[in-house]
Design a protein around this nucleic acid. Structure first.
Lengths: 125, 125
DNA sequence: TACTTGTTCTAGATCATATAGAACAATGTG
DNA sequence: CACATTGTTCTATATGATCTAGAACAAGTA
């Protein structure tokens, strides 16, 4: 997995790291049991402070995406609710539904930011 | 339209105002030509500073959602790309696609935050 | 003209972000 | 066991975003 951060982006650095794990999960590039690079390793290669990386790790832990243990690192614990189903096929379904949502939203004349707002509202309840 | 803000929420106050306009648009509660309350009026009723409200107005203007003119206020300019089509029907289609996306994402075991990340990625390109 | 409304400017307080250093605890390895 | 690895916790500092506050201004409405 390739890690990158853009210090000039409006998104916080720790949020960029979290987002990359999300995307990797959706593509199947990261799966149950995979281990992320250590916080010190990531911080050095990305020229970040270790606390910034650790903040991303702790958010992922709170999300239930990774399990953190000292000496071992961050291991992916996100699992499909359907168990033995092919993860790649499910990821494709997600992306298909995502495209349809974006298409419907733009067809309705809603600005892109509104689509994000509506999704957050839907996830809140 | 009912306006509310939560000072304890992590979302910035101006972003909460922007989000409410987005939601109202998606429900058809706000449509082309509608006028928002004046910034001073909104600020007083919500116990906010006028600059906070004006910041939300300017974001909505940058999004192309409203048109701002001194003396007149903020008027909705968001329009459906299909023109004469029923706005309510389109809004329903958006919500149906949104639900399918959320369902597919949760079925794939993706955390809610990941769905937001993926949507932002999809809108970036 | 008088009033309304958004625009622009300065200013200050508070919180989030990011960095930095240090010591510590749990885990894995030889 | 001893040692290195790795996350955890603590204090501290600098910077920017957010929010409030006040004032003067410009363009539109009545």
């Amino acid at each position: 997995m390739i890690w990158t951060v853009d210090p000039t982006a409006p998104e916080p650095l720790y949020a960029q790291l979290v987002a990359q794990v999300h995307v990797a999960l959706s593509y199947g590039d990261l799966a149950d049991g995979d281990r992320l690079p250590s916080a010190r390793e990531l911080a050095q290669s990305l020229d970040l402070n270790i606390h910034t990386v650790l903040r991303a790790f702790q958010i992922l832990r709170d999300e239930g995406v990774v399990e953190l243990r000292r000496g071992r690192g961050a291991i992916i614990t996100a699992r499909s609710t359907t168990g033995t189903t092919n993860a790649t096929r499910e990821a494709d379904g997600v992306r298909q539904a995502l495209r349809q949502y974006v298409d419907a939203g733009t067809a309705a004349g809603l600005p892109p930011e509104a689509l994000i707002t509506l999704l957050k509202e839907a996830l809140r309840s």
